[in-house]
Amino acid sequence: MRLQDLILALLFASESPVSAELMAQAVDRPVYEVEEALEALGRRLALDGPLQVVRLAGGFQLATKSEFAPAVARLLEPRPLKLSQAMLEVLAVVAYRQPITSAEIQEVRGVDSDYSLKQLLDRRLVMETGRRRTPGRPIEYGTTSQFLHQFNLNSLQDLPQLAVGDDGSMLAIGPETPQDQLALELEAEE
């Protein structure tokens, strides 16, 4: 049985991202062999068919390619994830400043942010990560793997990097995901 096919079966059966280590345990093969098979499988699927292997939230998962999104969306009628400007701001503050307390979020934004924070907690985009060792021991918050998944990120390292542009304004750079790299490689090969 081809390792690539075994990996494809594992990815198909999984409802959430699976790490290469877990797949290696399942197929009883070294991790590097699984990683090589994942790369080969990713190339194979990228060239043919409606599916792709995506690297998300610290693992790998099968997903439909974007050109098939309209038809799938008409079938599934997914509820769009609506994030207000306030929620996006709180999410960005938590993502870039974590672990952070509610009071610190409020200080950065200049307004009470508890409502938006609660909405983000309910949507599992933000979670409690512990308590700070300061008087009152306030709760600290950080982002979740759900956040990585819903924002197309493999890890927090993939968050857009902020840099100062030539005109002195702030710019967001990246992220360059493994999928982007693969697309660039395939474009170059063509």
Binding site: E15, S66, A73, P80, L88, A92, Q146, Q150, P160
Partner: peptide, 25 residues
């Protein structure tokens, strides 16, 4: 953080073009 907020918004829009067996991780 404004550029990052815009970048997150774009990332989210990109992610909406993909579908998984389970929509939630």
């Amino acid at each position: 953080l404004q550029p990052a907020i815009e970048a997150l918004r774009e990332l989210r829009q990109e992610a909406e073009g993909r579908f998984f067996r389970s929509p939630e991780a």
